[in-house]
């Protein structure tokens, strides 16, 4: 059973918010705690899925933004 504090550290670790010393301790723990290493792996997998689930807007919408900015520059 992974402690709640360690689970929170795992979340900070996969989002690169854990302090260097704590990260190193966690990485050492992965070597001899299979459950902890598996939990980290699962978090990284779902994180990867979330990254790839990003959607792109149509080019037209992006061009509208750029055109608006340029029109403001021309006015000033």
């Amino acid at each position: 059973m992974i402690k709640t504090s360690t689970q929170n550290e795992l979340i900070q670790y996969v989002y690169d918010e854990l302090a260097k010393n704590a990260s190193e301790q966690l990485e050492t723990a992965f070597m001899h705690d299979e459950e902890l290493a598996e939990s980290c792996s699962e978090l990284l997998q779902i994180q990867n899925l979330l990254d790839n689930a990003l959607k792109s807007p149509h080019k037209r919408a992006v061009q509208n933004i750029l055109n608006y900015s340029k029109s403001l520059s021309l006015q000033s």
């Binding site: 689930a53 990003l54 959607k55 792109s56 807007p57 992006v62 933004i65 750029l66 900015s69 340029k70 520059s73």
Partner: peptide, 20 residues
């Protein structure tokens, strides 16, 4: 400072996260 290309890069860098 007036560089529109810089803004284009900002938009392209963040449009997907903003849109999603």
């Amino acid at each position: 400072a007036g560089n529109e290309n810089a803004f284009e890069q900002l938009v392209n860098r963040h449009k997907n996260k903003v849109y999603t």
